[in-house]
Each structure stands twice: as C-alpha cells, then as structure tokens.
Design a protein around this nucleic acid. Structure first.
Lengths: 223, 223
DNA sequence: AATTGCAATAATGTCGACATTTTAATGTTT
DNA sequence: AAACATTAAAATGTCGACATTATTGCAATT
C-alpha cells in the first residue's frame, strides 16, 4: 500500500548521478572510479554501469575502452552550441504552442507565472525552489506544442544547459538588476503569447534564453 | 596488430540490437527475453542490460520494473509527431547550413548527389546501399549547420523514423513514379541550396520528408 | 464449465568473483 | 640525472550464481 512503485537501482542511481554531474559535484573531465561510485551510491557495479550507459547517450559522460567512464568535458563551443540549439527548439515549441494552445494552456501559464512571481523575494534564500518554479513556467508554455518528441529534446537540452549555468554562469545570479530585467521579459513573453504573436514571442524567448550565455564571449578566460 | 580498437560488447550489442529493432526483426511491443538475447548475440546479461539501457534513453525499448524490456510500441500519433519534428529539425539545420556553408559544403553535396544518382538504377537490386547514399546526401546538406547538438537530434529522429518506414511505409518503395518525383525533389533542393534560398529550401525539405508519412492518414487501417 | 488458489517453473535484477588490461612504482642502464 | 624496462598494484568488463518477483500450469471448488 505504500506502493511507491519505485524503479530499480539503476534508474535511481542514474537520477542521482545525473544530478551530481549537473550540479558540478563531479567536475567536467573527472574520472568516475567504480570504487568511488559504489561507495557513494551504495550499489554494486551492475546498476552503476547501466546508469552510466544511459548518461552516455545523454552525453553527460564519456567512455574509453578499458579505461572506464569520465564526466563529459565542457567547452565554450559546446556551451554556445547548446544554448543556440535550445533557443531554436524553444522557438519551435512556442510557435506550435501558439497554434495549438487552448484556454487550458493559457490558464496554466498564468498559474505558473503567479507561483513564480510570488517566489521572487525568496530567490536568495531558496534558489532551487525558485528555479523549479521558473522551469515549471517555461515548461507550461512549451507544453502547448503537444509534441512529445520536441518536448523530450527540449528537456535534454535544458539539462545540459543547466550544467553550464551551474558551472559558469551562476556567479552573478543574485544581481537584482539582471533579475528585474528577467521578470520583465517573462511579462512581455506572456503578453505576446496571449496575443498569439508568434514572431514576437519567438524573438523574446530567444533573447531570454541566450542572454546568460552571451556573458561569456569567445575570448573570456575560463577558470 | 589487427587492432580494430573495437569497443566493448555492450556497444556492439547495442548497435546490433538497434538494427534488429529498426529493421523490424523484433516487433513493436515484443518482449525481449534475456535468454533469447543471450543466445542471439552470444553475450552475457551484463552487456545486454547496458545495451538495453542505452536504447531505453533513445526510446527504442521500454522497461517495466521486474518485468524486463520490451520493444517500444508504435502508434500513428507517434509516427506523425516524429515525422513532423524531424522535418522541423531538418529545416533548422538547412537554414543554418545556408548561412554557414562554404564551398566545401556545396562540393560535398554535389559529390553525394552524384553518387546517389548513379545508383538510381540499382535501387531494386541493392536497396540498402541506395538508402546509404540517400542518407549520405541528406546528411551532407545538414552537416553544413555545424551544430553537433542539432545533428545529434537529427540522427536520433532519423533512426526512429526509419523504423516506421521499414514497418509501414516500405510496401510501395519500388513505385517508379514516386521515385521519379523523389529524384526531382532532390534536384530542386540542390538548386535552392546553391542559390541560398532559405525559405524555398525549407519548404522543399519539409515536403520531401513528410510525403511518405502522409500516405498513412489518421483513419487508415494498420497491419 | 468457469473461476479461484496453490505449486512449480521461469525470468528479472543484483552481487561477488575472475580474467584482462591499464596504471603506478621500482629498479636498471646509458 | 633522465629514459627505459620490468614488476606490482589497481581498475575495468564480463560471466555465473543467487535471491526476489512474476508467470504459468494444474487441481480443487462453486
């Protein structure tokens, strides 16, 4: 009756390991020792290798024959490619969502926006909860496209982008002026969506998503 | 000395198993018995589960707790979603390729087109080699976008679409009138690309990619 | 005859062990 | 002292075995 229908160890470990990579606990390029992973997640080798196999497809780890797994390395080129691609996918989702979205879609967007804005003050104290609401807001918008395929691609790119955000772009998070601009962008986006102004909404979302990555130009020093 | 730097069993099995699913050897929804897979690929359980874990992420298999793996089911809705999404991704790639493609890009397209057209007569006798050249032609075009991220998404969608092509849309393959139209579409596409006519090229590629799926309408009987 | 309960058969998911390969550590030679 | 060869240690990838869970087959009952 508690049920929980929890999955096997492999899927649990895969979720935890993904979080540890995205959060930066395991650094880019770092070797992932089986002995260490075994100890950290308290499982045997089999579910570990299954979890790593999944993250291999998602390009969060890399493998070399007989030399084990490493965290996928990062690069400025990859970051820009991911951010640009994500912006384009999001434009696609929004374009379709404006075509296909109904009243329920609009209502959910407004509901998520409300929950996000009510949390604006707590961004310092509970940043991860704010991030969840922020993500829920954007997901509500994109979900209107009603395309599982596009939404899956979108999720994958969000995850990869979040790693770069955690690693590189997080330093100026609590900048209140940047934050105010961000909130205004959300408002403008909602207005464009409700007016079904596809072109404007696509332009706004691209600016919104790309602005963090533009802080790191081609010739900035890293680390 | 023969070297071959071949990967581990898991990656070999994953490639073979993927082919068996895409080709339809393993039918949609079919249970994938470990005992059968062991016998077919001559490996133990560990590399098999790692291969299946990868195909799980690529959504070619599904898993149920304590009930093992099954081939991912198919549906008309999913087929249309995949085909539409693929067309949109391909439009993105082509739009960027027209922006970024150089002389080398143009030359490779023409080279691949030539090798494809020289094989037009052999489509009956060696259909899989023709399919390879056809794929190489389109990949050459898309590669001009120079975005690893988009190209990776594109490859994944190509694979999923090929399953539907093998399962449902292959019956009328050797229709010579359809084939002639196809060849003309390729020519028109090349012309549009060389003229850097983004809008026309995007329209042409969408028609080219979607035409097979349009043969199966919402209310056609399946199987 | 159909349904329920129970036993036996089979399949899954995980662990520990083993062979092979890589990495390090040490000693030897120029 | 630096470079090379050799040995020791550690890590990887795979297999077989085991406990747990699901499925099948059969008998008993209504």
């Amino acid at each position: 009756m508690p049920v929980a229908d929890v999955n096997n160890y492999a899927s649990i470990v895969m979720t935890q390991l993904k979080q540890d990579i995205l959060s930066g606990f395991f650094k880019p390029g770092e070797k992932l020792l089986m002995s260490r992973l075994k100890e950290r997640y308290q499982v045997g080798i089999s579910p570990l290798r299954e979890a790593l196999s999944q993250l291999l497809v998602e390009q969060l780890v890399v493998v070399e024959n007989q030399r084990g797994f490493k965290v996928h390395p990062i690069s400025l080129e990859e970051m820009h490619d991911i951010y640009r691609s994500r912006a384009q996918i999001e434009q696609l989702c929004i374009g379709l969502a404006i075509e296909r979205g109904d009243d329920e879609w609009e209502a959910t967007i407004l509901a998520c926006a409300h929950k996000m804005q009510k949390y604006a003050d707590c961004i310092q104290s509970q940043p991860q909860e704010w991030e969840r609401r922020h993500q829920a807001f954007h997901t509500a918008i994109a979900s209107g496209c009603q395309s599982p395929t596009l939404l899956q691609v979108r999720r994958s790119l969000y995850e990869k982008a979040s790693r770069y955000r955690n690693l590189w772009l997080n330093k100026n998070m609590p900048d209140s002026s940047v934050f105010a601009v961000n909130q205004q962008q959300h408002q403008d986006l909602i207005t464009a969506l409700l007016q079904r102004d596809t072109q404007l909404a696509q332009q706004l979302i691209a600016e919104h998503l790309l602005s963090p990555s533009l802080l790191l130009g081609k010739n900035d020093s890293l680390k």
